[in-house]
Amino acid sequence: MSHPSDSTAPPFTSFSQQREAATLGMWGFLGMEVLFFGPMFLGYIVFRINFPDAFMTASRHTLILAGGVNTALLLISSFTMALAVRSANLLEDSAKVVRSLLVTLLLGGAFVGIKCFEYSHEIHEGLLPGASFHLDGADPQQAQMFFYLYFLMTGMHLLHVIIGLGLIAVFILRAKLTVRKERFSIAMEQLGLYWHFVDLVWVFLFPLIYLGGRAA
């Protein structure tokens, strides 16, 4: 079943060793990512404590429908990614992997599109921090801090999504071309972990950014 060239990468001596090492390394990397996003969340918490009213008012100016749809898109894309990883692990026909990855790519692409629409809307409304920032009903300086954090955190997340989409595109090609299925499945598992992590960050961003002050 296994292709003759499908051998482990040095210095590993077995696929299981290589798989465990790669997964361990990926989780170490994701732990690093948690602490890369962490300071921005800390900043958000500190300024939400300092400026509670402005943050609630500013939060109401975000587009909750766009944010909600985007959350759903990411969650579903995580599902299709899980399917792609599953197919790769079963060493199935690469067409199945490619199909799941393509759907993931489309969903992720839609996320980026909607996010860009939101940005352009907010910039049009004068919510981009800077000299022209204005927002009625709240201390402009404090509301500006909310939108600074908003652009920063969603922007950093968007960067991760775009990197993920680039990787998915590469993996679609790889899935089509490769004969080294075992090695490919190890790599696919790490791609999956990365994509789910991007989803995970958004799961926390969504309520903090979009849901504040909706009940008032």
């Binding site: 732990g31 990512e33 948690v34 602490l35 962490g38 300071p39 969340f41 800390l42």
Partner: peptide, 10 residues
């Protein structure tokens, strides 16, 4: 550990 360390920071 990643999440725990973030909890420490915060």
């Amino acid at each position: 550990i990643g999440f725990f360390w973030l909890a420490l920071l915060i």
